[in-house]
């Protein structure tokens, strides 16, 4: 990654120009060619530095409900529990953390009923009744250049 890549990454973490040729607009801002910008973006995407290029949605405004969940999973069951939890498309983030509740994940669903059903299902499939389910009551901050699905 060179200096131009970094400048490009900084630019595209803000809003892309909503014009017919957005990469041309970025190229003009960086004083390089449109082809160069497209080639660099392709490379950064292949290397997965860019996870996604496009719209980042506010899940709540799309009518989706989200919760943060935490499970206590014994070390020998981690792999199995992760496989169950990660199999849900509505689970977008899942991290191991250094706490008794060691598996932390976000879960999104299109309605409160669907969400409750998924929570129940995950409890059953991981055979783990001790799951924290923590809905957000208030959002004080979501920094725009960190991707988040608004759980």
């Amino acid at each position: 990654m060179d200096d131009l890549d970094r400048r490009l990454l900084n630019l595209i973490q803000d809003d892309l120009p909503l014009v017919a040729k957005p990469y041309r607009a970025l190229a003009d801002a960086l004083q390089v060619s449109e082809e160069d910008v497209i080639a660099r973006l392709s490379r950064l995407r292949e290397r997965r530095v860019i996870r996604r290029l496009g719209a980042i949605f506010d899940s709540r405004r799309l009518g989706y409900q989200g919760v943060l969940c935490a499970l206590r999973v014994p070390a020998e069951q981690l792999e199995q529990a992760a496989a169950v939890v990660n199999s849900y498309p509505g689970v977008t983030h899942n991290y191991l953390r250094d706490h008794n509740y060691n598996m932390w994940f976000t879960l999104l669903a299109p309605s409160p009923a669907a969400l409750a059903a998924k929570v129940r299902e995950i409890r059953e499939r991981t055979a783990n009744e001790d799951m924290l389910v923590l809905p957000a009551k208030r959002v004080f901050k979501i920094k725009v250049n960190f991707e988040l699905d608004g759980v």
């Binding site: 980042i56 799309l62 849900y88 991290y95 706490h99 669903a109 991707e147």
Partner: peptide
């Protein structure tokens, strides 16, 4: 307060909306 450090990232993906009527059957 307590700090909970991430020790491993097990999943990080982008949500796909309005794709299935019954999203997330675990499949």
């Amino acid at each position: 307060y307590r700090l909970l450090y991430s020790t491993a990232e097990l999943k990080k993906s982008s949500m796909k909306y309005f794709l299935e009527p019954d999203e997330g059957t675990g499949g």
